[in-house]
Design a protein around this nucleic acid. Sequence first.
DNA 1: AAATGTGGCAACCGCCTGCTA
DNA 2: TTAGCAGGCGGTTGCCACATT
Length: 332
Amino acid sequence: MGRTPSSDKNGLKKGPWTPEEDQKLIQYIQVHGPGNWRNLPKNAGLQRCGKSCRLRWTNYLRPDIRRGRFSFEEEETIIQLHSVLGNKWSTIAARLPGRTDNEIKNYWNTHIRKRLLRMGIDPVTHSPRLDFLDLSSLFNSTQLNLSNLLGLQALVNPEIFKLANSLLLSHTHENQELLLQNQNFQGPELLLQKLQQNQLLHNQSSISQHNDQLHNQVSEIPNCTPQNVSSSSSQSMQGIMGQYMMNNDQMFQKNVMLPLQNYSYSTSDVSENSIIQSLNNSNNINNNQNSQNFSFDTPLSGAEEEKESYCSNFNNFMKFEIPESLNFDDLL
DNA sequence: AAATGTGGCAACCGCCTGCTA
DNA sequence: TTAGCAGGCGGTTGCCACATT
C-alpha cells in the first residue's frame, strides 16, 4: 500500500509507515499532544519530516477517525455539500465527524464522481452534462421539431444557443460538411441572432433570485464562498447548463425527471439512489414524482458508455422532431 | 497459470494562508 | 512592511489487490 520506502536527500524516510513508526507517533502524541510538527519527529525518534507525521496522524492515526464504508447519510451529505462547496474537502470533512478530507476526496474521486458521470451528471456542476452531446446531430435529426423548440420561449437561455454555436464551430470536419449540405442553414451564429431578435430571452431576474437563495444557504456555512453560483454571464459550458437547470426547476422536472422515469430502478445500488435524492435536494426541485424510478444499472466501462448513457438520457430531455423539408431561413 | 488492466487509497508534492518577529 | 516559517489544503502519484483476458 502506498509508496515504496525511500528517503529524501536529508535522509528522512518516505513512503508507507511501518507499525513501529505508527506506534512511536501515537505514543509521543499521547504524551505531548499534537502540534509543533517540525520538532516532533526528532523528539519522537522518527526519521520523518514533520509534515509526513502530521498527515499520518490526521489522516490515519487519530483516535476519532471513523473508518470503513461510507453510510447512505454520509454519501448524501458529501454530494449535497459538494454541490455547494465544490472541492472544499476540509470544509466538507468538518461536517462529517470522523472522516478526513483525504478520505472524502478519495471517496469522491473513486466512487461518487464516476457514478455521477455514468449517470450523465456533471460532477462539477451537479447538472446534466452537455459535453457529451452532439448538438449538431439535432440539426440534422429528423426528430428536431423547431416549432417545439421555439415554444420554449422564455425558458430558453440564450447561452444554450451560444453553447450550441461554439460546439458546432469547434466540431469535426464531418459536422462542417453536414452544415454545408444544408445550404439554407446560414450557421448557428445567425440562428442565435435571430432567436435573440425574436426576443427569446431568458428571464435573467429568475437567475438572480435563485442565486441569492443559494448564496443565503451557503453563507450559513462558515468560511464558505459558493463556487457554483457564478454570474449568469459565465461562458462555461457546464456552468451554463448548471445555471440553466438550477433556474428552471420546472423545466428540469418536466424534461429530465419525467422522461427518465421510464427507466427501472435498481435497488441493488443504494448509492445511486442517494445521488438522485441529493441532487434533487441540492437543486431544490419540488419533485412530486418518484425520482427513484431512475436506473443506472449498466456496468461502468469507459467514456463510450458514459456518452451513450448520457445521450440516452439527454435524448429524452430534448426530444425534437424536424421536418425533412425544414428551411431555416423561413423559420427565422 | 500468467499477463494485463483497473480500482482503491495512502502518501507525497507544491502552493497558499496566517502568524510572528 | 516584509521575510520566514508552520500548518493547511487540493491535486497527483504510485503501489497493491483484485478482476479480466
